[in-house]
Design a protein around this nucleic acid. Sequence first.
RNA 1: GCGCCUGUAGCUCAACGGAUAGAGUAUCUGACUACGGAUCAGACGGUUGGGGGUUCGAAUCCCUCCAGGCGCACCA
Length: 565
Amino acid sequence: MASLVERRRAGAEAGIEADTAAGGERIAPLVIDPASVVLERPKNREHGDWASNIAMRIAKPLGANPREVAAELASGLEKLEGVASVDIAGPGFINIRLDAAAAGQLAHAIVEAGPEYGTGDLYAGVTMNLEFVSANPTGPIHIGGVRWAAVGDSLARILQAEGALVTREYYFNDHGEQIDRFARSLLASYEGQPTPEDGYGGQYISDITDRVVAAYAERVAADGAAELASLPAEEKQEVFRSIGVELMFGDIRQSLHDFGVDFDVYFHENSLHDSQAVERAVARLRDAGHIFEKDGAVWLRTTEFGDDKDRVIIKSDGNAAYIAGDLAYYLDKRERGFERNLIMLGADHHGYVGRLMAMTAAFGDTPYVNLEILIGQLVTLLRDGVPQRMSKRAGTVVTMEDLVDAVGVDAARYALVRSSADSQLDIDLDLLTKRTNDNPVFYVQYAHARTQSVARNAASVGVDRSVFDASLLDHETESILLGALAEFPRVVRQAAELREPHRVARYIEEVAGDYHRWYDNCRVTPVGDEPVTDVHRSRLWLNDATGQVIRNGLGLLGVTAPERM
RNA sequence: GCGCCUGUAGCUCAACGGAUAGAGUAUCUGACUACGGAUCAGACGGUUGGGGGUUCGAAUCCCUCCAGGCGCACCA
């Protein structure tokens, strides 16, 4: 099986905006891989506003010197409106510099576009189901789950910005062995017994136990149900199971909500079993000839579709295996009309990818397209640099609430979303708690607050946006800031394509830095008795445009953009 | 043993196959009688884990070795 990232990238749409129209005729008939040609904003500003490697790409098939090809192209580019200069550099880069007026026009465009700036149509009208978190209702969401809450919700926002019709979905696993363990743990707690061998421990278990007892007591009072203590053991455990799961579910929803994450659908696994959906899914696969029986169990021949081994769907004891729910669930999503189904899983579940992709193929769908599984690496929790072992059984779990209580929602979300999900993340609670200024979120938020402060000051001294002359935005820091602002749409697009929200975070950090440096060099309001000029007015547009971009970017991350700090 | 992810500055992490590998933080030096100093300017800091290969060009792609994390059920 090819690497997931590779498959993901191969399936992503290539974004090519190189304009070859300015080239001569000898280039037209060439066949080159468009994905290898890039028109980009160079890292180094001395290389101009835009740069392209096209000459180096096409030199070989042409049998020509890259610099000569570049020169030919450059002569055409120089004639374009708004282009100030075109240089050939290094092995054959074409560096394009725009005149200030052309570059500055962007500030006006951003302010006009407002919240729409940065959005695109990459996935216009595409129905997407994004499933994430889906933690078992056997305890509070721990720190690993919080990462998916932050990354998943942000990804949903980014995909929506590209026009996707996204449904956020939480698969609520309320069926099976884990839940039974949870129920047994509650019962044990109620009866003063030690935590069962395979059960859950910790303070929250006794808390939930007390609440179940209280909730059941209300039921007794209301409709005369039998006293809890008088129930047979089996019924007693069922009381703890049903009410305990319900309470846990409510708690999880609440903490996610407090974290700024609300799902459109909380899907209960139980409903799949109750509605015969599992049977229907199995029947469908059986009709397709992918089912066989062996050793008293029902199997899905996943090896036919690249899986390591065939998988049991119905165990020999007649109960459905876990994957049976997945089959029915996937089918349900497809029947609800989702073209693309994304599931975010922790690295501890990446072993499922093969079988789920095989399942997709068995249903006649296309793996990695109709179903896409995003694997994220786990979070290591540190305390003063020492890794902490978390154990649900021992109850030594750091929860979502713990993290939010320590650093707040904005800082927590930002810290979790600013790194690639491919890399393991170390979170040092003590560090985050003691020195919150270390979190770059404050740098970005401060930049936004500063744009708002500048706007307020401008208004108070009579600087308004009645005039906009882009050619007056010609300071070096303005050129850099404008260049950064221009990147936003492609950053959003790339973050959506690659499913990598962290790109947005890194980007707004750069914008914040460029803004602070501009602020240091260019005043929006006049000093002392100086009259208000069009320079001030034009700069106000740039100030407001920057605020808009940071606001839009923070919005994609689910982080607030404060007016003041 | 097989598979997936990772290895980049003291630390936490970026970098669409491109130009001199970047930020934050830490350490050191500077800048407020100017729109918020939660800021800015500068310095220090790297054999991108090691070794091969592909390419005009590799942190990025391929092979191999080393190290760490996580998986390889008729458990969920």
